[in-house]
Structures are given as C-alpha cells and as structure tokens.
Design a protein around this nucleic acid. Structure first.
Lengths: 112, 112
DNA sequence: ATTTTATTTCGATCAATATGGAATTGTCAA
DNA sequence: TTGACAATTCCATATTGATCGAAATAAAAT
C-alpha cells in the first residue's frame, strides 16, 4: 500500500509539466500560488492545467483554497516529505554501505 | 533539460512494479541481481519484466552486465543520487524556511 | 549437434493519459 | 441582473503505456 501510494505520487511528479508546477509550488511556499499565476508562468491552456492540478490533488500532493474568485494552490509539504523520506529509506537500505552521497554538507542547513 | 530528465526518471519510478524492482535493486547493492532473481521475487511474466527493465535502462536508472547466460541488473546509484539531489534542491528553495523535516537524525549515518 | 536455461523481442490488445476548444460554474463589481 | 473574471468540467482525439503469449536470441551443457 505504501509502495503503491509512493508510486502514484512519483508518477504525478514524473511529467514535465507537473514537475514544473511542483517547482512553482515549492517556490510559492506555504501561502501558495493562484492557478492563474501558474498558468501565466507556464503559458498553457487552462483546461490542460486544470487536468494536471486535478491529478496532483487526487494523490494529495496539492491542496486548493478559494479566496474570492481565485483558487490558491498549496503544496502538501508533509506528503512530499513522506514521499522523499520513503525513497531515502529505500535507498539507504543496502548492505551497510552508503549508497547516496547527499551529505548534510550538501544541505544548506541542519534540516532541509 | 534537467527538468525533463528528472521527470522522465520519476515517471519510471512512478509505477508500482518498477518501484518494486527499484527496491530489489537497492537491496542488491553494487553487485546487482539477476533478471531471473527479480522475476522470482515479483512473480511476473518474463516479457513484462523485460519491458519494465528496458524502460529503466532507457533513462539510465539501470545497467545490465552479462555473466554467462545470466544478466545482472545494477542500479545506477549516481543517477539516483542526482535525481534525489535535484528533488531536494527544488524542495529546499522556498523562502528561507525549512520545508522538509528529514533531518540528519533520520539518516542512519553522516551520509545516506 | 541438440537440448536446456536465461532473457529479450515481437505482436496484438486493452487501458490510461495528454491535450485543448467549448460550454459551465462560481464569485464579485457595477 | 448583466458583465467580466477565474477556473473547472465536458468532450473528442491522439498518443503512450501495460500486459503477456509466442517466437527468437544467446550461452552453456550434454
């Protein structure tokens, strides 16, 4: 189940348009960014964008909140965190040896 | 280009069978694991497995080396590292605040 | 040479996804 | 209550992907 969920979320990130959306959402931080703003940055038809946002919402990568007529999109950071944590756990599991060389030095601070 | 490559690789990890393969490859470590061994663990038809392996090879997540009649699959750890590094870089980029709480404490050692 | 073992390629089918125009819904302002 | 704006849903189309049996390739053993 955990594997299926992780795969589903990775699949959503595994599309260049959606990964671009993801980047915009990360930059936007906790307060989020409006759909129209995303559309302007990516320059794609609204219906296409809506399609991708709906998919990301379905796997809980994304949340929307309405403020008047604009919808704001916020990344579900806790979910992203869980996903990356899962991937890291998988990658670290090999026979004692360090498999990945992303050290704390590569991270700007204690936490990332 | 970097985004496209990352998306392509995430898409390959974003399938439950291939993510299961990924786990097996991680566990196998640098020396790798034979195709037959993977097939036995997953209990899927050979042609289906080949299809998934070919896709992973195409995006450089996977390498094969032949030893007699058996093919060994090895994860391209450097590529996985680059991919996760890219994702982390994207996730850390938000307005000063720590967005993910995977701390070094969550990692078994200095490096992961 | 022939058989056995390991794995891939071929080929066909079925399901899922991406795309974008047109119509629709929801909200505010005049 | 009409008009404008924000975004979605609907719909049709085109492409890609997943699955797996059967045939083919590769290497070793008999």
């Amino acid at each position: 189940m955990e594997l299926e969920m992780a795969a589903a979320r990775l699949a959503e990130l595994g599309h260049s348009t959606r990964l671009a959306i993801f980047r915009i959402l990360v930059k936007a931080g906790r307060q989020g960014v409006s759909v129209g703003d995303i559309q302007q940055q990516l320059d794609i038809p609204g219906s296409t964008l809506s399609h991708h946002l709906a998919r990301m919402i379905k796997v809980d990568l994304l949340q929307q909140r309405r403020e008047g007529r604009t919808l704001y999109c916020q990344l579900q950071f806790a979910v992203v965190e869980a996903l990356l944590g899962y991937l890291y756990a998988e990658c670290c599991a090999a026979d004692g040896q360090p498999l990945l060389t992303i050290s704390k030095a590569a991270l700007s601070s204690d936490r990332c």
